[in-house]
C-alpha cells in the first residue's frame, strides 16, 4: 500500500512544484519507488521542473478518459529509475478531472509505488480539492508572508473537513509545515515573519525550512530538481526534509542564518 502525500498551499508561487519535484526525487534516491503527479490541469509545470517536458505523450486526463493506460502515461525520470512522473493535461478543461477517475488512478498506482506525491495547483478549485482528497500526509508549503500564511490556514481547514479521511471519520491527514523562501537576516531585522511567528498561527509539525536561495532558480532553469544540487543550501534543506519525513532525526538548519561579513570582521553575536 502506498502512502499518498499532497503538496499544497492555497497561494500560488510559494514553491509547491519545486517542493514536489525535490521531495519525490529525494524519496526515490533513498530507494523508495515514487511517482509524482501534476494536478494543475491547463497550467502544467512539473514536467518542466523535472526536465521531462519533451517526453510527455499522454497525461492524467488521457488515463481518466481511457485513451491511454497508466503505464503509457508515466514518464521514467532521467536521473533516477525509481521515480516516475504523471503529467497534467495542458489543453483539457479542468472539469475533466473527476473524483472517481483520480481515485482509480491512485488505487492502481498504489499497487506499484511506495510513495505517491500529488503536486496541487494553487487555489481551492477542483484540481486542488482532488489533489488533497485521497491524501494520507499533507505538506503545507508556506512563505513567511501574510497572504501565504492565511491561505495555508484556509487549506488546513479544508484538509480537516473536505478529505476522504475526514468524510470517512478515519484518522485525520498528517499535516506538516515546509517554510520556504526564508531569509534569516530579514527576520532578525524585523521585516519578515519568523518561523515562531508562523508556527504560533499554524502550529504544525515542522519538516524543514528552505532558505531563500539562488540555486532554486538555477535548478529550474536546467530542469533538475534542486535536491540534486547537493552543494546548495536549498538542496541540503530538502534532503533534510526527506530524511526527517522518513523518520531520521536531523537538527534544523537555515533558521538562524550564517554570520554576515560584518560580524565575521568585527566579531560579536
Amino acid at each position: 500500500m502506498a502512502r499518498i502525500i499532497v503538496v499544497t498551499s492555497g497561494k500560488g508561487g510559494v514553491g509547491k512544484t519545486t517542493t514536489s519535484a525535490a521531495i519525490s526525487m529525494g524519496l526515490a534516491k533513498k530507494g523508495h519507488k515514487t511517482v509524482v503527479i501534476d494536478f494543475d490541469v491547463g497550467l502544467r509545470n512539473l514536467d518542466l521542473i523535472m526536465g521531462c517536458e519533451r517526453r510527455v505523450v499522454y497525461d492524467i486526463i488521457n488515463v481518466i478518459n481511457g485513451e491511454a493506460s497508466i503505464n503509457q502515461a508515466l514518464i521514467k525520470d532521467k536521473n533516477c529509475n525509481l521515480l516516475s512522473i504523471l503529467p497534467a493535461s495542458q489543453t483539457r478543461n479542468k472539469d475533466a478531472l473527476t473524483q472517481e477517475g483520480v481515485g482509480k488512478i491512485l488505487e492502481e498506482l498504489s499497487k506499484d509505488f511506495k510513495y505517491i506525491v500529488c503536486d496541487s495547483p494553487a487555489g481551492i478549485e477542483q484540481g486542488a480539492h482532488l489533489a488533497m482528497y485521497f491524501a494520507d500526509d499533507a505538506f503545507i508549503v508556506t512563505n513567511p508572508e501574510v497572504s501565504s500564511v492565511r491561505d495555508s490556514d484556509r487549506i488546513l481547514g479544508l484538509l480537516s473537513s473536505k478529505s476522504q479521511r475526514a468524510e470517512k471519520n478515519d484518522e485525520p491527514i498528517k499535516e506538516y509545515l515546509i517554510l520556504t523562501r526564508y531569509a534569516p537576516e530579514r527576520v532578525k531585522s524585523g521585516e519578515m515573519l519568523s518561523l515562531d511567528d508562523v508556527q504560533d498561527i499554524l502550529s504544525l509539525d515542522l519538516l524543514g525550512v528552505i532558505p531563500e536561495s539562488k540555486s532554486v532558480l538555477t535548478a529550474s532553469n536546467s530542469g533538475n530538481p534542486v535536491i540534486l544540487d547537493e552543494k546548495s543550501d536549498a538542496g541540503q534543506a530538502y534532503s533534510d526534509i526527506v530524511a526527517r519525513y522518513l523518520g531520521e532525526t536531523r537538527p534544523h538548519r537555515f533558521i538562524d542564518g550564517k554570520k554576515g561579513l560584518f560580524r565575521k570582521l568585527f566579531g560579536g553575536g
Binding site: 521585516e191 515573519l193 511567528d197 498561527i201
Partner: peptide, 10 residues
Amino acid sequence: SSASLAKERL
C-alpha cells in the same frame, strides 16, 4: 516592526 504588525494582523 513590520513583522510584528504582520503577525498581529494575521
